[in-house]
Design a protein around this nucleic acid. Structure first.
Lengths: 248, 248
DNA sequence: CGCGAGCTTGATGCCGATCAATGCATGTGG
DNA sequence: CCACATGCATTGATCGGCATCAAGCTCGCG
């Protein structure tokens, strides 16, 4: 159940972690709530959980009872086929919700693995349901988040179904930098939290291909690559690759 | 807005189309409802809409205000990149819900195209929100449906990211036959509603490759293929392909 | 009947997979 | 501090699956 992770009840004194005080609240579930609603959310989100790098937050087959909001750290989610093939279905950073897959059948259908030491807020699903019957804003925001996940998945399908290796990597990097920028980071400088193989398994490529694309981008002056430290030198070139306008 | 489709209010006499009387209710939104709940659903779902083969139910960019439940017919959904590449993101048959992508931003992000003359029930999203604050069962079922869509998308990602052409087609056919079987059809005999190109655009393959795979399956005695009329002769072979156990 | 959309089949080429060797950073124990 | 192991990344050589290009085929329909 806990997969080597510790469960920490939030102490009354530890107000920094309450939704009402969280600096992620504009990226997470409580977007645009009233103080009253925020207070009720604080009551509901009473648990945190720490997950060490390499450990799983949940696994396919686990009983589903809570959603998780990433507070700190970084996760990947992956599905596996019976014969052991993996597909990384997403990378998840602070403010993002994990576990939506579990609602459909009361069991999780994917694994969530921490790529660095991480902390999540535990959102008991039953309570979220109850509270969102009471607060229209919460209901709406929750539906938006689920819908956004569906839209995101459509984008990944487009990538996997129709793009070539360089385009995939460009799209991946642009997506990462955008999300980092929304969290106050640079947007042109980033440190990858995942290996080349994990990137490949996300993009439907082999790790050698990912590595070659990084080298190509470096040769072309689009990126500077030092292991996992990436500098985006020419974001426009990446955008043109994704949109195919460079082909015209 | 209406994209060449006609909007037909449901007449009081026309009770056959009410959710409470619909033979799809066990596959659609009202799974396991009480009579009272069904009555309220009937009030909400007061409109049908007909869509002719080739017409769109909605397009990316359209303002979102309703979900649609397929009553009769068959749809594909697709997303397009700026440079015109398409990805078919799904095929949708009776009882399935369309339009969930629109919730996140109040605009649709994909096109829904009828592959044959079809009819949908119009589910005004605002009313669905309101009613699902009142009825726990409706709320739960709606959440399950959204989550199921997320799980389905994960499966497509696995397919696109890690399977070879024959495996993709096998998975596609198994999925289709399962869903047809759940609707009372044969499970071994089916008529494809889509072209080879549409299958290819869904599976991340070119139409020639799809055609070759069909021929291969026929040569191997797994299928009998007459244009769009397919007989599954050896479902087990298809399953082994998908699971990769044939490789051992 | 003849047209056209969709399907099949063949020949060829390319992109990314695979196989293999090397490089590089980090960590550990002697 | 060095020797060595380990995990990850890079790079090269070769291979194979699918895309591409091209030609005919089938069937429904005006």
């Amino acid at each position: 159940m806990s997969h080597n992770a510790t469960v920490v009840p939030i102490k009354a004194a530890d107000l920094k972690v309450a939704c009402s005080n969280c600096n992620l609240r504009e990226l997470c579930l409580p977007v645009g709530f009233t103080d009253q609603e925020l207070g009720r959310l604080d009551d509901m989100v009473a648990l945190r959980r720490s997950v060490r790098r390499g450990d799983t937050l949940f696994r396919a087959g686990d009983h589903f009872e809570s959603l998780f909001a990433v507070r700190t750290g970084f996760f990947k989610t992956r599905v596996s086929s019976e014969d052991g093939r993996d597909q990384v279905t997403g990378f998840h950073m602070a403010g993002e919700l994990l576990g939506l897959d579990g609602i459909s059948s009361d069991r999780h259908t994917c694994d969530a693995v921490a790529l660095e030491d991480s902390q999540v807020c535990v959102i008991p699903y039953g309570q979220l349901e109850a509270l969102s019957r009471e607060f229209t804003d919460l209901q709406r925001q929750f539906h938006r988040i689920m819908s956004r996940e569906i839209v995101r998945d459509q984008g990944v399908m487009l990538l996997l179904g129709s793009m070539r290796a360089e385009e995939r990597l460009a799209a991946f990097l642009l997506n990462l930098t955008q999300r980092l920028q929304a969290r106050g980071f640079s947007g042109s400088s980033l440190v990858l939290r995942m290996t080349r193989e994990e990137i490949g398994t996300y993009l439907g490529l082999k790790l050698e291909t990912v590595s070659r694309c990084f080298s190509k981008f470096q040769d072309d002056g689009v990126l500077q690559v030092k292991q996992r430290q990436i500098e985006v030198l020419d974001a426009e070139a990446l955008r043109e690759l994704v949109n195919g306008s460079a082909c015209q």
